[in-house]
Design a binder for these strands. Sequence first.
DNA 1: CAGTGAGCGAGCTTCCGCTTGACTT
Length: 777
Amino acid sequence: MIENLVIVESPAKAKTIESFLGKDFIVKSCFGHVRDLSKKNFGIEIDNNYSPQYIVSEDKKKIVAELKKLAKDSGVVWLATDEDREGEAIAWHLSEILKLSPENTKRIVFHEITKDAIRNAVDNPRKLNKDLVNAQQARRILDRLVGFELSPVLWKKIQPKLSAGRVQSVAVRLLVEREREVMHFNPESKFKVYGTFSFSDEQGEKVELKAEVTNHFPDSDETRKFLNNCKDADFEVVDIITKPSRKSPAPPFTTSTLQQEASRKLGFSVSQTMTVAQKLYEAGFITYMRTDSVNLSSLALVSARNTITQEFGEKYAKTRKYKTKAKGAQEAHEAVRPTYFQNETIKGNRSEQRLYNLIWKRTIASQMSEAQLEKTTITINISNSDKRFVASGEVIKFDGFLKVYMESKDEELDDSTKGMLPLISTGQFLNYESINAYERFSTSPPRYTEASLVKKLEELGIGRPSTYAPTISTIQQRGYVFKEDRPGFNRNFTVISLSEGKLEEKTKTEKAGTEKKKLFPKNIGIIVNDFLIEHFKDILNYNFTASVEKEFDEIAAGKLDWTEMIDAFYKPFHAKVEKSLATSIKKTGERQLGKDPETGEPVMVRIGKYGPFVQLGDSSKDEKPRFASLLKGQLIETITLEEALELFKLPRTVGDFEGKDLIVGVGRFGPYVRHNNKFFSLKKETDDPLTINKSRAIELIEEKREIEKKRIIKSFPNDPDLKVLIGRYGPYISYKKKNFRIPRKNEPESLTFEDCLRIIEEGQKKERQKAKGKRQK
DNA sequence: CAGTGAGCGAGCTTCCGCTTGACTT
């Protein structure tokens, strides 16, 4: 007989809580949701008032059986799942599946894992909140209905295996719309003028002062006119303003802000951040990493203050409480913070240390005093112009939180010259040393990174901390979008300089349009998005989630019946599904590009079974048309006739090597060189299949041969099929195109031929067992 | 692993949100 069984969601949490509660309590975890809607027939009896059909998830059968047994032997079962909609539902599912009796079941909640919070929770148990559970059921059922009705429409009208959903489809829409903004953006240029001035100070020393004209000049004529004026102008300091200003620290991390900062400061992908954070959490170094709250426990506040006072002194400490402003936040957990502030560093691999360091600094800074700055602005009059030069500087009077941490921005700051300004007074006349005007181009709104997309989704209240990373992966896995670096292009710009009374004009070159780890839509993503917008505009609406969330809140408050809400949504939605199936024809994104000037045959582009391709010629004629795949990054929407015609030049022979032809083409896995029936991939950064030459092709072949050679740890003369190789996940055995893992106890270098055969034998045995197990399921 | 692009039809795909491992070449 167990007196008390406590069930929480996370096993790491269970361990901590058990240590707080003493020997009368057993704490177990259920690993999140234990039941879900069956996948058969939607898992919903639509005609039976949307009655949900729940089944225990395959991977939860074991844990449910274990909990059942423990619950039967327990006096009181404490359901201590998270204090939010999903947590309440998990508690309800547990009470159902474990057949708990109301009198022996207590629901408790805490949103921080501290001894006081847990004790307090145990002293204040409550009953299950069925309204909140119903709000969750409505959420779950709505998502199932949307996902499982829309996706099959896409299978029929566009391509199999595609998907649509309340969250992912909006994520794709954001990317498609941003790409179109970039596509249609026309950069405009204007001129920005910077001057370097000088004067003699009281000691007779020459002192320099840099300043800029705050307005821009629309073109080079205006700019030249202004610079010509400057030749014989007097420059006089007419105004000096010094103003104090303050900067406050950013709040502690939530999942979303952690992902953003880890992306900006450490270059982590969203999923990488979560994997590393999970490790830190399991090791007990940080609090729970999936949270939408910026709240810190009172224990954490005190402890942070102590650490700051000790390390930096009393005046650096300032206790701050932050309010969460994210839409739809449920605040079941604390902010992501170090569990012990005295651990400024931790043991772990490099990524773990770096992420921990970031979390430590951010949290500590959030409890520090603001920085005090002094901003100075010097205005310089130009005697023959109504324009003015302005020099601005910023001096830190007290660094405060800046001592440990400064939040990064997505966009780079302008290149204004901030810093110390020289001592100067009004009425001072200045000489110009040089005045330079730079042509500057306006930029389109930036493409999204994984992290900035998460930020946008969070702002719209779409998705939850536990789903941001999986959503980003899903839209990439479906082939809707992809992540890429783009090298950019060279752009000329004009510089007009005035120095020693002479005006000089130069053309310089800069890199523009460089992209790092940005998300780009693919053709199929664009076609799916346009189809969904055409037929299901309300679901794709950026406010759809926010508006259904309002209704879920009403259900949670007991003011709205969940089946009525679902019915009001489903009836018109389902009618639109039927209509889209009946009326729309298959979408391929087809576009006519024009006629081939050589043959006069039509050229068109569309998406097919194997992706987007161009077609030369009519398929209704006797002569078969020619086909060619689009290159990565080429869009159906923007490809020109000229670019399409280029594609038909592939595959092409660029020369020969070792007596065999070198053929360049584009296949399923991208551009390649084929030589002696072996394929060598082109490097996507540097190589273009349309322009690559013989010497570069040979280079690629030799490069790959070199790598192949290094991959071989061991080979055996008596069987050339058998090799020990080093791969992405360490050493492995390759035999007749099959791979086998090497058991940990073996040194890969010292494996004998017989050892390898034995490992292969075992591996094949295991594989057969696995196949058998699968069939039985 | 890299030549495809017609059409038929069986059987499959798919959602969001909670949680961790197992596993990869």
